[in-house]
Design a protein around this nucleic acid. Sequence first.
DNA 1: CCTTCATTGTGACGTGTTTCACAAGCGAGT
DNA 2: ACTCGCTTGTGAAACACGTCACAATGAAGG
Lengths: 244, 244
Amino acid sequence: MPAIARTNPIDQLPETRDVRPSAKFGIDMDLDDEVDELAQLSIPDVVIRRLPIYVRTLHSLLEKNEPSVSSEELARLIGVTAAQIRRDLSYFGKFGKQGKGYDVGYLSNTIERILKLDRTWDMVLCGMGKLGHAIANYRGFTRSSFVIAGLFDTDSDVVGEMVNDMPIQPMADLVKVMRENHISVGIIATPRKNAQETADLMVEGGVQAILNYAPVILRVPDHVTVREIDPVSALQSMSYYINE
Amino acid sequence: MPAIARTNPIDQLPETRDVRPSAKFGIDMDLDDEVDELAQLSIPDVVIRRLPIYVRTLHSLLEKNEPSVSSEELARLIGVTAAQIRRDLSYFGKFGKQGKGYDVGYLSNTIERILKLDRTWDMVLCGMGKLGHAIANYRGFTRSSFVIAGLFDTDSDVVGEMVNDMPIQPMADLVKVMRENHISVGIIATPRKNAQETADLMVEGGVQAILNYAPVILRVPDHVTVREIDPVSALQSMSYYINE
DNA sequence: CCTTCATTGTGACGTGTTTCACAAGCGAGT
DNA sequence: ACTCGCTTGTGAAACACGTCACAATGAAGG
Ligand SMILES: NC(=O)c1ccc[n+]([C@@H]2O[C@H](COP(=O)([O-])OP(=O)(O)OC[C@H]3O[C@@H](n4cnc5c(N)ncnc54)[C@H](O)[C@@H]3O)[C@@H](O)[C@H]2O)c1
Ligand SMILES: NC(=O)c1ccc[n+]([C@@H]2O[C@H](COP(=O)([O-])OP(=O)(O)OC[C@H]3O[C@@H](n4cnc5c(N)ncnc54)[C@H](O)[C@@H]3O)[C@@H](O)[C@H]2O)c1
């Protein structure tokens, strides 16, 4: 059950499980408070999950050369309340100016720093079937701090094949490659039945975040975050609301 | 902002927006309570989103020929607490037996009825680029009450192409096709910039549930449920928790 | 420098969700 | 028929999260 923490399974679906003390206050502390270094605040995972949307929306404002934005306007764009945005941001500090709002570029950079998006994360991708190929060729990740750095499969027929300029490697090498390259993010695109064993290997390799496309709940240690991508569950929960 | 209700945007990410009075108690009432037909209970969307996982897990128990299961064991399999499962189910009625647990087949059927999965839902899929092709060929949907019944794109170069035995149709026909065939579920796989206009057309066609793969928050009327599939946001929120 | 205006950041409050804990009920065994 | 052990269903309590509402404050303009 610790595995469920911060996980989309019951989450993408269910939704909001967060067994552990949530998150620790991780941004650089303001200088004024030297005493409280250990008094870390626990930030709700709900809040963390909203931050990427804030970033995305701020980026679209940047493209339009908007210099600043009020919580009111940002809220309208995103579809939440202004109070929620202000509250969310207040977990991390004070970034706005009264009467003015938030500087778009500054806020966007700040949230990216909070989320540790001001760097690149290498990822391994396991399971190079149809979905794995699609993911490996997807351009959307690179634009967002994440880079697929290794492709893996058990099937000797596909091992060696080049996909998007990278060779598919045997699963036997996964742990070694992850350790040698300090890779802490993994994507699982194997069949359902092999997902758990794949997750176990990733854990052995030092994974800290897993994006799981297989329709199973993964059992992982507490320090590993899992998010599920599960369109079928999404559809199945929506059908409840359809009339007639 | 009503558009956000029950939506994964801030939800898959953010996570748990639910502006409206949630859901109405929709399962057939037990015969004993004739008075309260109008006293409909509002069921939290969180609960609804967990139900597909319950169903999935029950199916895997069925495969193993387990005749019954306790909330304790089910909870262990799913990674939630037993109390949560019992509470969730109690929104809909009493399905277990003291000392025994739940009949796997019966509970699974019951939840499927609640979610309206005891029938087939036709879907339209808009945007037949790389992702659209992958979705159209994905076999996972059919196993789960959802069937892609129409493919649409604006690009005249791809219109007419056969994908998985279905022709890609022009977007101009979308509304007509949806209405004539009473299709109430849509999948959006268009570029980001065209997602809102596509959603608008689906609404015109009578859509009630949209699965949105484009990274934008859609604005839709209150009676439409939207769920986002957004792996990038999922990764971006997980990176917050990665140490070093 | 003072006034006005807009908008933040946050206590206090309210609602929603989860967990606790236990009386009630079923079934097996005697 | 009675007892025992197990497990449900659910009030009540705890906790988490979202919203209200307003004092505080920066900026702009006189
Ligand atoms: N979430 C989504 O959007 C989505 C979409 C499509 C598929 N899926 C899921 O993704 C998974 C893969 O789907 P697919 O259509 O690509 O299937 P597929 O059968 O085409 O590919 C599976 C691949 O995984 C490899 N594999 C098997 N065991 C492995 C292991 N232990 N380690 C590494 N690789 C292993 C196989 O050799 C194969 O290449 C399935 O679980 C499916 O349900 C999810
Ligand atoms: N969520 C995910 O897992 C995921 C994965 C990959 C891509 N995406 C997103 O899905 C979308 C499509 O990605 P892709 O790689 O297939 O892009 P693509 O460019 O290959 O395909 C887009 C298709 O949409 C069509 N289109 C454009 N405007 C349209 C309109 N108004 N109505 C109908 N069709 C229209 C285009 O003709 C094209 O065929 C993008 O928004 C991308 O960000 C999401």
